[in-house]
Design a protein around this nucleic acid. Structure first.
Length: 476
RNA sequence: GCGAUCGUAGCUCAGUUGGUUAGAGCGCCGGUUUGUGGUACCGGAGGUCGGGGGUUCGAACCCCCUCGAUCGCCCCA
């Protein structure tokens, strides 16, 4: 009887290789930018009491009413796997006395769970980056978050084709008045609306504006505009947000129909949208949620935040082939007698490389900046590559020599070093086809190839003497 | 939750009026050759044709159910 291999759960993914590199690249870039903007790091549990989400998101929202992974634990308590970050973060803010840090700039990332129909860029276990400012009513907080999001996309190299869609929902009064006007307006045309929109009329009338159904289009154009219902304060607030964006040089498009799905949003609402991911075009979205903390029993605490889908960002990164698997220097023991020597060499190089990189960076720094301050403007761009080193040393231990060599090439080795035992007159080093392009080399990129040159010099006449008999095999 | 397309070796796929032991490339394992490893060649392992049921003398190919993926709707990151 054959043993059946259990299958992965629907909507989950196993990420590997280039995709995993892209995923990690997104997270690493986020961490760097988050520190740059001085957002503090937080980690929260993956599950909470169900009430944390049902109360803050709104009972009637799709997320709460049909997409949550909820279950009773052994004590009979209803728990839920987090479908989003904000509610759990708000709960943590209240239960840990984080109020003392307000306005608190926090960031986190990790897995979230939603029972939805899987599609490209949409999974049941998915991952988000998240940034929030809790306890700040100032529009400058909204601006800070948006500028940070914009920089993140730029640093990921995927800002082309991504547009910031911006809207305001006004304060609670403005939003309510607008909502009432919309209901009245659409109710007059209810008979002509799509079934979906007739349903939305009761549950979430704002969303009718977003409808893609051609039957709704004629009515959405003439629907009441939020701008006509904004209070003076709400107008002023939005004006300060847009002025802040202009001052920081962040482009946006006013999207009066943009409405976020969750009940807690007020004032600023925004999405960064791309047309390259089909129906899942929203890559980062968020807004202000001044009422949320109160729904969890806290004092009135204004807050803003956004979340971004790591999978979606990673797909854009992969399309732009920005993230590469690290290049390799491969060390092959040439026969069993050379195994120990090869591992000694690998250990030496691996320990030495971080110091060499520091030394190179320091030398370049001195060369570029110490000589002439006036040159600073021009040197930053030139030096982008020097911080991008991603290389590794692979010590091969497969027994078949031929396979070792073939595998090294498949793994895109920049340098292959074979090691033979002492006393073997044919001891030699081989440099095999550098896979870096001419352009990379011309830029003086810090690759495995150039690092190996330094190591060769260091080794000199040592016991390895690997630089002798060097042979270079040119790329095809 | 609704609609559409699809599901054949590890990967990419071929395989129609349903008919003998289901194929290719790449990968994997072994070997030969090449003046020392980028080549070429030989051989081998590996497939419940997503799963279950049905129609039929006989189905990878037809029908039903089911699971999964993809695309769209809904919703959202």
């Amino acid at each position: 009887m054959a043993i059946e291999t259990p299958k992965a759960i629907r909507g989950t993914q196993d990420i590997f290789g280039a995709e995993a590199e892209a995923f990690a690249h997104v997270v690493e870039t986020f961490e760097r930018v988050r520190k740059l903007y001085r957002f503090r790091r937080a980690e929260m549990p993956v599950f909470e009491k169900t009430a944390v989400f049902s109360r803050s998101l709104g009972e009637t929202t799709d997320v709460v009413s049909k997409e949550m992974y909820s279950f009773d634990d052994r004590g009979g308590e209803s728990l839920t796997l987090r479908p989003e970050f904000t509610a759990g973060l708000a709960r943590a803010f209240l239960t840990n006395g984080w109020q003392q840090h307000a306005p608190l700039k926090v960031a986190t990332h990790g897995p979230l769970f939603r029972y939805e129909r899987p599609q490209k860029g949409r999974y049941r276990q998915f991952h988000q980056l998240d940034a929030e400012i809790i306890g700040a009513a100032e529009p400058q907080a909204d601006v800070e978050l948006l500028v940070m999001a914009d920089q993140l996309l730029h640093e990921l190299g995927i800002s082309d084709g991504v547009t910031l869609m911006l809207n305001t929902l006004g304060d609670a009064q403005s939003r309510e008045a607008w909502r009432a006007a919309l209901v009245e307006y659409f109710r007059a045309h209810a008979g002509s609306l799509s079934e979906d929109s007739q349903d939305r009329l009761e549950r979430n009338p704002l969303r009718i504006l977003d409808s893609k159904d051609p039957r709704d289009k004629p009515f959405t154009a003439d629907a009441p505009k939020i701008d006509d219902f904004l209070s003076g304060e709400a107008q002023d607030f939005f004006g300060q947000v847009t002025a802040g964006l202009k001052a920081a040089g962040v482009d946006y498009v006013r999207a009066p129909a943009l409405v976020r799905g969750l009940d807690y949003y007020r004032h600023t609402a925004f999405e960064f949208v791309t047309d390259r991911l089909g129906a899942q075009g929203t890559v980062l979205g968020g807004g202000r949620y001044d009422g949320l903390i109160e729904t969890l029993g806290g004092a009135h605490t204004p807050a803003v935040g956004w979340a971004a889908g790591i999978e979606r960002l990673a797909m854009l990164v992969a399309d732009a082939s920005i993230a590469r698997e690290p290049e390799a220097l491969v060390i092959l023991p040439d026969g069993p007698s050379a195994i120990l020597k090869a591992s000694a060499l690998a250990a030496y190089i691996r320990r030495r490389i971080p110091q060499l990189i520091k030394k190179i960076d320091r030398d370049r720094w001195n060369r570029d900046f110490a000589i002439d301050d006036a040159s600073i403007d021009g040197t930053f761009a030139d030096n982008d590559e020097m911080f991008g080193f991603a290389g590794g040393v692979e010590l091969s231990f497969k027994h078949n020599q031929r396979k070792q060599f073939d595998k090294a090439k498949r793994d895109r080795a920049s340098v292959i070093v074979t090691v033979r035992d002492d006393g073997d007159p044919s001891s030699r080093t081989m440099l095999v086809s550098s896979h870096r392009t001419q352009k990379d080399l011309a830029l003086g990129a810090l690759g495995m190839h150039s690092l190996w040159s330094l190591i060769e010099i260091e080794l000199g006449e040592s016991e390895y003497s690997l630089a002798r008999d060097t042979r270079i095999i040119l790329p095809e």
